[in-house]
């Protein structure tokens, strides 16, 4: 598999540059929607749809959009697709719409999508951008589902709404609440560090330049770039 093959672009987002667990992008929806597996899966797939559409569209327009105006252009394109996805979800999946609520709107300001537009779609041809969108979207969905599984199984003793007989009697209720999300996320990041022996979080290939907060960001990832204000 050559380094630049289309397959590697696809896999990149799922494992090596997993947006949630390695790049640490899109933390808000990650924490907010992983209380239940259903919510996490819905959020992941909605973001996947927006990401693929916006990546394709931005890639098509990459030679037309002026360099200095690119961020507002990207945001309008993304907001447009978010509106489309929101209307589809509202019409066909009203339960999911009620669960996700305002977070569906907030896909607009999800760092992952703007980040991929800036990092990848604005510089690469359409097919590769689409594959990157699918990979990143799947990576996002996968990490959300993993987190939601931990939180739902231990927090409310069920999986995607189905009750698990034994777990039902020993639930840790706070895992499904707000603090549980932060705790599980922290533990997962520590676990990734142990499993990879620190190889991933230390890599310098973080897509911080796509993150709107990068210039003022002090997380270990962005600090490596030496950005100070």
């Amino acid at each position: 598999m050559s380094k630049n093959s289309n397959l590697s672009v696809l896999l990149n987002g799922i494992i090596k540059e997993n947006p949630v667990l390695v790049l640490i992008l899109g933390t808000c929806p990650t924490l907010a929607t992983t209380g239940t597996v259903d919510g996490a899966l819905g959020m992941g797939l909605a973001a996947l749809a927006v990401l693929v559409c916006s990546n394709v569209f931005i890639s098509l327009l990459r030679n037309v959009i002026p360099e200095t105006m690119r961020i507002p252009c990207y945001i309008v394109i993304i907001a447009g697709f978010v509106t489309v996805v929101k209307m589809i979800v509202q019409a066909y999946l009203p339960d999911l719409y009620a669960t996700l609520g305002v977070y569906l709107d907030l896909i607009t300001v999800n760092c992952i999508i703007l980040g991929r537009a800036e990092m990848f779609a604005g510089k690469n041809p359409v097919i590769r951008s689409a594959l990157d969108g699918v990979g990143m979207g799947l990576g996002f969905t996968l990490s959300l589902v993993v987190m939601a599984t931990i939180r739902e199984v231990f927090g409310s003793g069920s999986f995607a709404g189905y009750e698990i007989p034994f777990m039902q009697e020993y639930t840790i209720a706070f895992l499904t609440k707000a603090p549980g999300g932060l705790l599980v996320y922290g533990l997962l990041i520590a676990l990734i560090y142990v499993v990879t022996k620190g190889a991933f979080p230390k890599k310098k290939s973080f897509s911080c330049e796509g993150c709107p907060n990068a210039s003022n960001c002090y997380t270990p990832n962005c600090a490596e770039k030496g950005v100070e204000n």
């Binding site: 549980g180 996320y185 922290g186 533990l187 520590a190 997380t219």
Partner: peptide, 13 residues
């Protein structure tokens, strides 16, 4: 393993 973001998230929790 907890240095950086992990301990920050747990403290926020």
């Amino acid at each position: 393993p907890f240095r950086g973001l992990a301990v920050t998230l747990i403290a926020a929790s």
